[in-house]
Simulated scan of single mutants.
Amino acid sequence: MAQRILAARGELTVHARRPQPELIEAGAAWAQTPRELAGRVDVLLSMLPDLPQLESLLHGDDGLLAGAGDLLILVGSTSSAPEVRALDQRLRALTDDRVRLVDCPVSGGEDGAESGALSIMLGGDDEDVAVAAGVLAPCGTAVHLGPLGAGEVAKACNQLVVSATILALGEATVLAERSGLDLDRMWGLLSGGYAGSRLLDSRREKLVAGDDSPSGVARYMVKDLRFAADIAASTGTSAVMRPALRAAFDDLVAAGLGDRDIAVTRRYVAERSQAGDDTERS
């Protein structure tokens, strides 16, 4: 995302937990601290796992708030909608409305980020969202879905579908493999029917090869499904799929597979099945 924004705008200031030599070589400026970063920009895109990681950068002598003037923070994490709204209220109160939030979680994975084809879910005030949409335009399609937190609600819905789909794809792959089918040919055929999806397109090679080297790590699904539970509770929705999916991903993480790519569902189902066979034999 940073590379695409830099290419489109011609300038970018970055701060990260790890060095970013490729960005610096491409022309980005480096900020040594969050304070320095906030002092040099008026729009800040945060791409972190959740709000605690962002909040750890806000306070202290070198924190974002110490250097912030008028600052719009775009929260790209998959987080709780109520917690995003609460953080916005706290920041506005601390800074006399100088620091504000827009939520902008994304879907499309690493491949979508590289190709500029992300789906970007925006929530916030009209004026701030217009600024955010302009900044994020090089990264994909940005759509304003409602007030602050609306993007997080949409992302929870997205993750509900993604978690169900990747679990089904992993299970179907195990069934087909154990039945002697050619996996590549089967998924090539089924991708043209109702089973087809962008998720299948992006994970087909991994599922066929049994490759679950990290890209989008599976353990994040646990927190994402927790946020979906918060939305179900607040809307009085008796969810059917979410509890089963949360139980499956809790089990997957407990099995030590949480740091693998979400395509690890194939391995999870296979190993779970083997464990069940062993239990029955004993």
Rank of each mutant, 00 (worst) to 15 (best):
L145N: 12
K155V: 09
C157M: 13
L148K: 05
A172W: 03
H144L: 11
P147I: 01
A164Y: 02
T173P: 01
C157F: 02
I166P: 00
A156W: 07
H144N: 11
N158R: 04
I166A: 01
V162H: 02
L160R: 02
A150W: 05
H144E: 09
K155T: 06
Q159R: 03
V162N: 03
A154K: 10
G170C: 05
Q159D: 12
S163W: 00
H144R: 14
V162S: 12
H144V: 10
Q159M: 11
A164P: 02
H144C: 10
E152W: 00
P147M: 02
V153S: 06
K155F: 08
E152D: 15
T173W: 04
G146F: 04
A168Q: 04
A150D: 07
L169W: 09
E171M: 11
K155A: 10
V162W: 01
N158Y: 04
V153D: 00
G149R: 11
L145Q: 12
V161E: 06
A150Y: 07
E152T: 11
L145M: 13
L167C: 10
C157V: 14
A150E: 08
S163Q: 13
N158T: 09
K155C: 09
A154V: 14
G170R: 03
I166G: 01
L148G: 06
L169K: 05
A150V: 05
L160I: 14
V162Q: 01
L145V: 11
A156Q: 08
L167P: 00
A172G: 15
T165D: 12
A172Q: 04
G151Q: 10
V153T: 14
L169H: 07
P147A: 12
G149D: 11
A150F: 08
L145C: 12
A156E: 03
E152G: 00
I166V: 15
T165H: 13
L145Y: 10
L167H: 13
E171S: 12
Q159K: 03
T173H: 01
V153W: 01
Q159V: 05
H144G: 07
T173C: 13
L145K: 13
V161A: 15
E152R: 12
V153P: 00
L169S: 07
E171G: 10
G151M: 09
T173Q: 04
P147L: 01
E152S: 15
A164M: 13
A156P: 08
N158W: 05
L167I: 00
V161K: 02
V153Y: 11
L160N: 05
A154C: 15
L145D: 12
L160A: 08
L148Y: 04
K155H: 10
T165Y: 00
E171T: 07
V153N: 02
L169I: 08
G149N: 12
L145W: 11
E152Y: 00
E171Q: 15
G151D: 07
G149C: 11
A172I: 09
A168S: 15
E152Q: 15
H144I: 09
G146A: 07
V161I: 15
